[in-house]
Design a protein around this nucleic acid. Structure first.
Lengths: 96, 96
DNA sequence: TTCTATCCCTAGATGGACTATATATAGACA
DNA sequence: TGTCTATATATAGTCCATCTAGGGATAGAA
C-alpha cells in the first residue's frame, strides 16, 4: 500500500521509493531491500505497477516503477480496508 | 496487543478473548484458534500473562488468562509503538 | 584509491498466520 | 437416544512475507 501510494506522485526507482517512505514517515518506516524488491516483483506480477529502465538525475541506470490504472484502483481498495481495520483496532484499544 | 488489551478488563479464557475482540471490533477483527493459542503460549513464555484452570459460568473447564504487571507495561509500549506507526503511515498516505 | 551514496536483485532462514484437525463437554431439540 | 450447536483447548502442516546477508555495479568526493 505504501509503495503504491508513493508512486501516485511520480514514477520512481526502488531506491527512491525506500528513501521517500523513510523520509515522509520521519524515519519511522524503513523498507529494506529484501522486502522492497520482492514486493515490487509481486506488484509487477499483479499488474499494479509497470517498470522501465531509464537514467536517473545522477546519470545512473535505474528501473522506474509507474502506477497502473489497476494499481490505482487497488490502492483505493487497500486504503479503505486499512482504515476499516485501524478503526476496528481503535475500538478495541479504547474498549468502546 | 489486542489480546493484552482485552485482558485489562478482566481475566478471560481463550474462547472469550476471541469473542470479545470479534464483538468489540464489529466483526472486522477475527482471531482464529490457530493464531490465538500459539499467541497465548508466546505471551505466557514472555511472562506477560499467567494462566489458571477454572470453571466458566457455563460450568466448563477453561484456562483463564490474566494480565501480569509486565504484561501491562508491555501493552503500554506496544500501544505507543503502534500509534507511532499509524501516524507515520498516515503521513505517507496523506503525502504530507 | 578509497569511501560513501546510489542503484539492482536473490537466497536462505525465520517466524507468525491460516487451514485443518483432534479432543471434549453443556444444553437444546427431536 | 442421538445429533446439533456452541463452547472450550491445543497441535500439525502449509503458506508466505520479512529479514539477514549477500552479490554486483557506478558516480562523485575526499
Amino acid at each position: 500500500m505504501l509503495i503504491l501510494k508513493t508512486l501516485t506522485r511520480a514514477p520512481l526507482h526502488g531506491y527512491g521509493i525506500a528513501q521517500s517512505i523513510k523520509h515522509i514517515s520521519d524515519d519511522v518506516l524503513t523498507v529494506e531491500e529484501g522486502s522492497l524488491y520482492p514486493a515490487l516483483q509481486r506488484l509487477l506480477l499483479q499488474g499494479w505497477v509497470k517498470a522501465e529502465w531509464k537514467m536517473t538525475e545522477t546519470n545512473r541506470r535505474a528501473r522506474f516503477y509507474t502506477l497502473t490504472v489497476a494499481g490505482r484502483k487497488q490502492l483505493g481498495l487497500e486504503v479503505t480496508q486499512f482504515e476499516q481495520m485501524i478503526t476496528a483496532i481503535g475500538r478495541v484499544l479504547s474498549e468502546a
